[in-house]
Design a protein around this nucleic acid. Structure first.
Lengths: 224, 224
DNA sequence: CAATATTGTTCGCTAAGCCTAACATTCTGG
DNA sequence: CCAGAATGTTAGGCTTAGCGAACAATATTG
């Protein structure tokens, strides 16, 4: 079966489940899916039941939700679509990295496999999207993401930004102003625990920058 | 109201009704819509009733179907989307002109207005798509198509191809082999009425080509 | 460890789009 | 100009995806 044969909502569920476990091992729940997809829990409960009936996820009532091998394959295919589209919109059509998520969210359900492969070819088989996220290969492989959230990275260390969450466009615009993009190097000055502030300094810049929790959790880094 | 607020099927109905009257004044019927859309007449009957309730078409039971000003606006917006997408797929992604129709048919429902305008800009505001069809402006204007079907054009005349119907990809591949594309000049040798054959000769070529009814009806020409 | 809060599921409903079967209207050709 | 053919509409049913209300199970906490 092809990923394009699944309903849009099935594609959304699978991609979301996979994405949630890509960077952290937070267990996925019915209400977390409902929250992210903007639907009510009963809708998700039904939806997951249907996916389980198609052997795309495993799920017993009140139990955990996990992708089967088949489900994972389709989920990764959707992630590939999404990230290639985002890359294409930025590289070829002059979109800003804060504008692409929403557009790709729709297009990923509409483009054919042929179009995705043309885009991949036209871009020279990119391995990362504009936010630094790895783009899985057509076969579903991808280089394993590494790193930790800036919020929990070691104070005093110097790190490279590997990825920035695309969930909040506003935040991305703020990062653009700061010059904080994937592959930027920075040093972590300190964490001020109860203020939930992380102070950083970008490589080659003089002044410190304070980031709140939502910002420092959206940035993933790896030690230089 | 924006065209993107309409359901996919409403967008399809409107575009189809408009397109059917773009080149010839064939009256549009429930069953012609059903045939083109691959659905059954009762589906269309219901669908048209809903469009009429939204004042996008006028239609009394058993009566004719016509676009209102509002309906025409949305129809033209869909045609613009479709033709810009086709042009983009050919120009920027290396699609053949026989491959783009199907893909655009899906994408036209998914792309945002912003993306359409980016594509328009990236292509330098093209005025015709790969099949020669005029691309309406954002405001809905377009230079009026002219010409007649090759099948009814005057024998002995020399003409320029203005457009070729994209309905049949197979036919388009055949025309590609012949070198018969929009803007090609050709002379009409003769119509053989009861064989339904039209004999033409492309400018700069030696041999005559016989075209059957479906081919010579798909080609629109204008006197040089 | 029981009571309560949280989370998940079932049930019954809606709306859109599609279908077939049955019925109504209009067209057409003796 | 009327009968049969062609076309269009209505009625009723199916599926998908959503909802809220009510109920069930699990987690938390006093």
């Amino acid at each position: 079966m092809l990923v394009t044969d699944l309903s849009n909502s099935a594609q959304d569920y699978l991609k979301l489940i996979w994405t949630a476990t890509e960077w952290s091992a937070t267990p996925i729940t019915v209400s977390s899916i409902a929250g992210r997809l903007g639907v009510r829990p009963p809708t998700v409960s039904d939806g997951i039941k249907k996916l389980a009936a198609q052997n795309l996820v495993t799920h017993a009532p009140y139990g955990s939700i996990e992708l089967t091998a088949e489900g994972r394959k389709h989920a990764v295919a959707m992630v590939r679509r999404h990230r290639l589209l985002e890359t294409f919109l930025v590289q070829s059509l002059g979109y800003g990295w804060d504008e692409v998520h929403e557009e790709a969210e729709i297009l990923e359900h509409a483009v054919s496999d042929k179009l995705i492969e043309r885009i991949d070819q036209c871009l020279g088989h990119p391995t990362r999207d504009p936010h630094g996220d790895p783009i899985p290969s057509p076969g579903g492989q991808q280089h394993q993401p590494t790193g930790t959230q800036l919020s929990v990275a070691e104070a005093g260390s110097t790190v490279t930004v590997t990825r920035i969450s695309d969930a909040d466009p506003e935040l991305l615009r703020y990062f653009t102003e700061l010059g904080l993009t994937p592959d930027t190097q920075l040093s972590i000055q300190e964490h001020r625990r109860f203020a939930d502030l992380t102070t950083i300094r970008l490589r080659g810049q003089e002044q410190n920058i304070d980031l709140g929790a939502s910002a420092s959790e959206a940035i993933w880094v790896v030690a230089v």
